[in-house]
Amino acid sequence: MGRTIAILVARLIFAGVFALAASFKFAGMEATAAYIAAAGFPFPLFLAWVAAIFEVALVLAFLTGAFFSEAALLAAVYVIFLAFVFHGPSHWQGNQAEFGFFVDHFTFLAGLLFAAVHGPGERLALRKGFIWTQTAASAR
């Protein structure tokens, strides 16, 4: 029972983090686009929308358990990309807090990788995906 609760809470935390990120993007799409443009990316408004929609897809995967491992892996790549682009070494000299933000992304990465390997748990999880196998389910 404790394992099930821990997994469900972790899934809710993952979903909550990405839901907040998406809601901030939707609430201030122009500001998000400006932030993306400041990092030097082309088509910042388009990329802001892509990021928001991607984050909504992650929320759905974490809440339902469908394509959970795939979502966790994609989220891991996304989180590390964000760490380097928006909080990486080039930002540290101007603001030491950026180093803390950068490191925080790695703790999130660790959780996402752990989740990707262990899957969505046995309860309240749609078992759909490309990575999810019977072998992975029996390893639990």
Rank of each mutant, 00 (worst) to 15 (best):
I5D: 00
I7N: 09
R11F: 05
R11P: 01
L12I: 10
L12A: 14
I13P: 04
I13K: 08
F14H: 11
A15P: 07
F18H: 06
A21F: 08
A22F: 12
S23E: 04
A27M: 15
A27I: 10
G28D: 14
M29Y: 12
M29K: 10
T32F: 04
A33Y: 13
A33V: 06
A34D: 04
A37M: 03
A37D: 11
A38H: 04
G40V: 03
G40R: 11
F41P: 06
F41M: 14
F41Y: 15
P42I: 12
F43Q: 08
F43M: 13
L45E: 10
A51T: 15
A52K: 12
A52V: 11
I53V: 15
F54P: 02
E55G: 09
A57H: 01
L58V: 01
V59S: 03
L60D: 00
L63F: 04
T64R: 04
F68K: 03
A71K: 03
L74R: 07
A75Y: 05
A76K: 06
A76T: 13
Y78C: 06
I80L: 13
F81I: 12
F81N: 03
L82Q: 13
A83K: 06
A83V: 04
F86Y: 15
F86K: 13
G88L: 02
P89L: 11
S90H: 14
G94N: 11
G94C: 11
G94T: 10
N95H: 10
Q96C: 00
A97I: 09
F99R: 11
F99Y: 09
F99E: 02
G100P: 01
F102C: 06
F102N: 02
F102Y: 08
D104A: 14
H105R: 10
H105M: 05
F106Y: 14
L109G: 03
L109K: 09
L112F: 08
L113F: 05
L113M: 12
L113D: 00
A116E: 02
V117W: 15
V117R: 15
V117E: 03
V117F: 14
H118L: 08
G119L: 10
G119Y: 11
G121P: 07
G121E: 03
G121Q: 08
E122W: 15
E122A: 14
L124Y: 14
L126K: 10
K128P: 00
I131Y: 09
W132F: 12
T133M: 12
A136T: 02
